[in-house]
Simulated scan of single mutants.
Amino acid sequence: MRLEWLEDILAIADTGSFSGAAERRMLTQSAFSRRIKQIEDYVGVELFDRAHKPIRLKPTTTAQSEQIVQLTMALRQLVVDLRRGERMTSNRVVIACQHSLTAMRVPALLQQMPMERDGIYVRLRSANLDECTGMLLSRQADVAIVYRMPDELNDFGTDFLEELVIGSDRLIPVFNSPMPDLRRALTAQNGDQRFELPYITYPPDVFLGQVMERKILPFLNPALDHAPKLETALTLAAVEMAAIGLGVAWVPESLAQERLAAGTLFDLSPVLPVFDLQVIAVRVQGARNMAEGIFWSQLAAI
């Protein structure tokens, strides 16, 4: 059953005549009558009482009129959705980004871009670093936005990956108090004084876990007896755990800014190690569609 046929039936029900329905459907009366005959031949029954003036639906058709209305609306919406889906596919850019970047940096980044002008539709996919890389290489994502340690090159070389450095961040230690006892212990003249430092850790197979193991923990003051209190792969969870005093958390500074400004977290970087991070965008060389090319160009212009 075609959508136009259902609309023809409803037009007759609304106007009460073939001529009025033909005018509404912008057809000649003869062309409209032929189409009604075609509908009835397809269904195998007469749908209209032609003996009655004005013409009306037969009782069996009337009994199905509500279903015809609902089916017509559903088919119209399906057409709209299919057309919208096609536009979104051609104008869509899929961005894979690390969880902490999804929460803070990427929304601010997108806000700087006049994508409405180009009709670009963005789909964000949040994942850990390895998953972002996997989505990029398997073409499930057009662009990956991730953190990188500045002193490390990407593992894939530059033959088929293209990179842009689009920002920077710092991994900083935060806690729900300024920890004056810690500061006193680290500045004490007595080198035998020890201080227990509980901290939030990350799994060793995620990016920030690797940063902690290689760039933070080896540089802690020997006077600190540091012990992991809790492990999480989510930086937002680490922020919350630090805010309730479970332990010191090393988190991206951008993620902690609001709590630092509100005084519910304190930056301990004057006495504990920090590490600078780059924020980079990566794609497989050569844009695959218009949206990706425009998005990449706008990234390069920031």
Rank of each mutant, 00 (worst) to 15 (best):
R2M: 14
I9G: 02
I12G: 04
T15Q: 09
T15P: 03
G16C: 03
R24L: 10
R25S: 00
M26E: 13
L27N: 05
L27T: 11
T28W: 06
K37P: 03
Q38Y: 12
Q38L: 11
I39Q: 00
E40F: 04
D41C: 05
D41F: 07
Y42P: 05
V43E: 09
V45M: 10
E46L: 12
L47E: 01
R50Y: 08
K53N: 12
P54Y: 00
P54Q: 03
R56Q: 13
P59V: 07
Q64T: 12
S65Y: 14
V69E: 11
Q70T: 12
T72I: 06
R76E: 10
R76N: 10
Q77V: 09
V79S: 10
V79D: 12
R84F: 08
E86C: 11
R87Y: 13
T89C: 09
T89P: 09
Q98L: 10
S100D: 10
S100R: 04
R105Y: 15
A108Y: 12
Q111C: 11
R117A: 08
D118N: 13
L124Q: 07
G134S: 15
M135V: 05
M135R: 08
L136N: 00
L137Q: 06
S138P: 05
S138T: 08
R139F: 08
V143F: 03
V146T: 07
Y147F: 02
M149N: 14
M149G: 08
P150I: 01
D151Q: 11
N154C: 05
D155K: 13
F156Y: 15
T158I: 14
F160M: 14
L161F: 11
L164P: 00
I166D: 00
G167F: 07
S168N: 15
D169T: 03
I172Y: 00
P173Q: 01
V174E: 04
F175C: 09
N176T: 06
P178Y: 09
M179V: 06
L182P: 01
R183I: 08
R183Y: 06
R184N: 14
L186F: 03
L186N: 01
L186V: 03
T187E: 15
Q189W: 12
N190K: 12
G191T: 14
R194V: 00
P198I: 00
Y199R: 03
V206R: 07
V211L: 06
F219A: 08
F219W: 10
P222A: 10
A223W: 12
D225I: 15
A227G: 12
A227K: 14
K229R: 15
T232N: 05
A233E: 12
L234E: 14
T235Q: 15
T235K: 09
L236T: 15
M241D: 07
G247S: 04
V248G: 00
A249Q: 01
V251C: 00
V251L: 02
E253D: 13
A256T: 00
A256K: 02
L260C: 07
L260E: 05
A261F: 10
F266Q: 02
V274I: 15
D276L: 05
D276H: 10
L277Y: 03
L277F: 05
V284G: 02
V284F: 10
G286I: 03
M290G: 13
F295R: 04
S297N: 08
L299I: 01
A300T: 04
A301V: 12
